[in-house]
Design a binder for these strands. Structure first.
Lengths: 143, 143
DNA sequence: AAAGATTGAAGGTTCAATCTTA
DNA sequence: TAAGATTGAACCTTCAATCTTT
């Protein structure tokens, strides 16, 4: 009810700035080097890591915490760009998403860029001796 | 160059989930109670806090770290919704943004909702004895 | 030319409505 | 009916091009 205290306000502003900055920097480096957007990278990573290149749309959405319509719109754009194909199973239901050769090439190029960006823009700023508590706080926030 | 280590990967995923979750939860509560979007809330807060209800577009953009076009698009939508007015100074240059009565009412309703949401979804998850280091890490990330 | 601002296009996200199959 | 998926509208963000005034 009462207004935020100076400490709470400082925490909020620092959180928001850090949140925006890390997202923007990692995303920009991937886009600059590979042309993939952040969501493109997420989808292609999951396809390879969880499904070896093929997943049902349903499983893909669940693994990313996305709503159906969000994934559907995203896949439509990725299909137009040639990064994935959709294959119908059982006449229009349970659609399988398959990574294309172009998709494989793109994600292979993007992975090391992503790793470097995560190290530079996130991991490097968390002192090693605080890492466990930092991760614990993040996991509590996410929960 | 090399792939992310398990620790780095865990940090990255925790960061991303926390980042998305806090943003979404705070935003949803404000929208549900007031109809204001997250950017709406940000603009109206700055207008009151920095300019007592009136600011030049340029100053507003700088204070939020926004590009001109982003603010311009946002203000166009907010003007249509009656939250702000634009007043020309010096024939089309140096536009002043003024909060309307509807804008004042909306932000007054939103502030306590925001405070409660920030406490519940962010501040409550950071142990008091870790707060200084946590904020320090965030400010390093934002820098 | 430089500074402040606008615009249109393209991509991304959410919501509600819809469609198809089981 | 329920589950999987699509679609259209509205909103948000970025980029490049443009416009006006100084």
């Amino acid at each position: 009810m009462t207004a935020l205290t100076p400490d709470e306000l400082r925490l909020w502003h620092a959180w928001k700035r850090a949140s925006d900055a890390v997202r923007a920097r990692v995303g920009e480096e991937i886009t600059a080097e590979t042309g993939l957007s952040d969501p493109d990278f997420g989808v292609l990573s999951r396809l390879e890591d969880l499904g070896h290149g093929r997943l049902r749309q349903n499983e893909l959405a669940a693994s990313m915490g996305w709503h159906r319509s969000r994934l559907s719109h995203q896949l439509t754009r990725m299909e137009e760009r040639g990064l994935i194909d959709r294959e119908d199973v059982q006449r229009g239901v349970q659609v399988s998403v398959v990574i294309t050769e172009a998709g494989r090439t793109a994600i292979a190029t993007a992975r090391p860029v992503h790793a470097t960006a995560v190290r530079r823009h996130l991991a490097a700023h968390v002192p090693a001796d605080q890492l466990p508590q930092f991760i614990a706080a993040l996991e509590s926030l996410a929960g």
